[in-house]
Each structure stands twice: as structure tokens, then as C-alpha cells.
Design a protein around this nucleic acid. Structure first.
Lengths: 162, 162
DNA sequence: ATGATTTAACTAAGCACTTAGCTACACTGG
DNA sequence: CCAGTGTAGCTAAGTGCTTAGTTAAATCAT
């Protein structure tokens, strides 16, 4: 089973025979696999009138538990995006009535983002379908392989961030 | 070693005890790891006055071998982006003199993108540093683990694309 | 042959992110 | 106290992608 990354590595061997391009076999696949998987997940989001970033915000609020209130800062950390991007996501979600902004009673600068009832219904409908899509993609791996993959990925992430 | 994804899964267990969220352990880490790794790679590109997308185009041309000429269509396929995005990347690279466009002698509609001498020097300087960065990130894994990871990723990509 | 369809490459417009810069509030040291 | 510094959240401007639409050439069907 030869894939696109295999072909890329063959090309490098032909053009730069001395160069060890083996890291590309891992990191090239990492990027491409993430892209492919994400594009597959979007289909499920779209069926629920969501996109990946909206799903992300609503799911973060839901899993935070009642009373489903967190700060924009916290949302930015969880989603690995800027607080500015969060503000823009919230503008979109707020205009659809899926979240609301409230002043933070403990900090006059702060805001708390609340999941509305509409938003909660929406994310609770989408979540099981999303998990089903993820399960379908992963069904190609055994439980043990899935857990190996998770461990290897977390070691890489750790190495890349430090 | 508990990371962000571990914490997310704990939250889900608390909020939705019945739900099997184990797929998130894999797919959540996949996205986050890819993001983290890519942001690390950018540092090396910047040191060579490049960004990820420019590096991608120049590297694709280089590994295609002499005479370093390929079509925009081919570039789009390799980079997993639209031909429109390729046209815009080429506008930027052409204005910097790193690639040039030539008419395709075999197809009046077509264009061939050529790596200029300047572009070739640039990518050949950046490439070893880029590989060194990738190697540094991967040094946390043994050879065997790297190869396991590559195989598991390619199986996932295959499952997600079909 | 030639009209209809497909393909390659591009520009234009829209979208979601980034960084930079703003305002308002919180905290801290003298 | 309160002046100076730091922090939270926002808008504005810039970037690089997407989709939609354009042009011109190739291919295909009769």
C-alpha cells in the first residue's frame, strides 16, 4: 500500500540521494492525516448547521458542566486560538442565539460566555453523531492500536511544544 | 503525564458519564499535535524568509527533479489545496523571483511553474534545517516507534478519505 | 467539421484566522 | 491613595484560504 507520502519520499531519494528524509514520513503524514480527518468531520457538523469552530465552542461550554459559563480567555486556551478569534466566533454564535455574553461578576473587565438552551440542545444533538463519525474513522484500528497512537501523538506534541 | 486532552476527557466523563468519548483521545490529539508541530516548523521557515506554504511549493518543485517544472494542477494535488490557492501562492512567489510561469508547450490552456535559480538556492538552504527541526521533534521516539506512528497514521488517513 | 462539454488557470468576493492597537478595569509599589 | 503596569475583551486591518465566476483552449459526439 503506497500512498502520497511514500511517493514524496521516493522523489526525494531520487533527487537528493544522500539526504535522510525519514522524518517526513511521520510529520508529513501527521499534517495530511489531520487535514483529511478534519475535512471528514466537517460533514457531520454541517448536518447539524454547525462548522468545526462553532462545534468546538459549544462543546467546550457543554463539557464544562452546569452552569455552562466560561470566559473568552479560557475558550481561547482550549481551542488554541487567539482571544480575538474567540471574540469573532462569539459574535457569530451570539447572533444565532446559541451563546450569550454576561458580565463577569468577579472581574469588571471580564465576560462570561453562557450556553443558551437553544445552544445546549444543538450541541447535545450533534455530539453523538460526531462521536460516531470519529468511531467510524478509528474502527480501522484495534483498541490497542488506538491507545498506542494516542500515546505516541502526545509524546510528539510534548516534544514539539517544549 | 496528564495533558490537555486528558483533562477534556475527564470533563466529558463528569458531564456525560454514559458517553464513550474515547475516540476523542485519538482524534483530538491528532488535531492538536498537528497544530503544535506546524507552529514549531514555522520558526525554521521564517529563519529562511519563507512560510509554510511557500516552502511547500518550492520543495515540491525541487523534489520533482530537473528541469524543476510542474503544472499548477499538480501543485494543488500535492498540497491538498484548491488551484485558486495555488495561483495566489504563485503570485507571491513569482513577485519575489523564486518561481516563474511558462506556457505549457503541450497544452495551450496550461502553465508550467519553474523553480528559478534563486528559488532553488533558497529551498536547498532551508531544507536541511527543516529536516533537522523535524528530527529534533521526533527524537523523542525510537525508530521503531516512528515507523509504527507512520503506519497507524496512514491507516487512519486511508479510513478517513474513503 | 463544428457545437457542446470539459478542463486549466486565473481573478473576485467572502470567510476565519492573525497581529496590532484600543478601552476599561485590576493589581502593585511607593 | 494613586501612578504605573498588567490583563480581558474588543475592533480594525491584513493574510491566505475557499467558492463562484471568467476566459480560453482541448476534447468529444455527431
Amino acid at each position: 500500500m503506497t500512498d502520497q507520502v511514500d511517493r514524496i519520499i521516493e522523489q526525494w531519494h531520487r533527487e537528493k540521494p544522500g539526504l535522510d528524509v525519514s522524518p517526513m514520513a511521520v510529520i508529513g503524514r501527521l499534517s495530511r492525516t489531520a487535514l483529511t480527518v478534519e475535512s471528514r468531520l466537517v460533514d457531520t457538523f454541517v448536518q447539524h448547521q454547525l462548522d468545526a469552530s462553532s462545534f468546538d465552542v459549544l462543546a467546550t461550554l457543554l463539557r464544562s458542566g452546569a452552569p455552562y459559563r466560561i470566559s473568552p480567555m479560557e475558550l481561547a486556551r482550549e481551542a488554541m486560538i487567539s482571544t480575538s478569534a474567540v471574540a469573532q466566533r462569539l459574535n457569530r454564535l451570539e447572533s444565532r442565539g446559541l451563546v450569550a455574553r454576561e458580565p463577569n461578576p468577579n472581574d469588571g473587565r471580564g465576560t462570561l460566555v453562557v450556553l443558551t438552551d437553544t445552544g445546549k440542545v444543538m450541541i447535545e444533538k450533534a455530539l453523538p453523531d460526531h462521536l460516531e463519525t470519529e468511531r467510524a474513522i478509528l474502527s480501522t484500528l484495534s483498541r490497542a492500536e488506538q491507545s498506542t497512537l494516542a500515546i505516541l501523538l502526545s509524546r510528539i506534541e510534548n516534544a514539539a511544544s517544549s
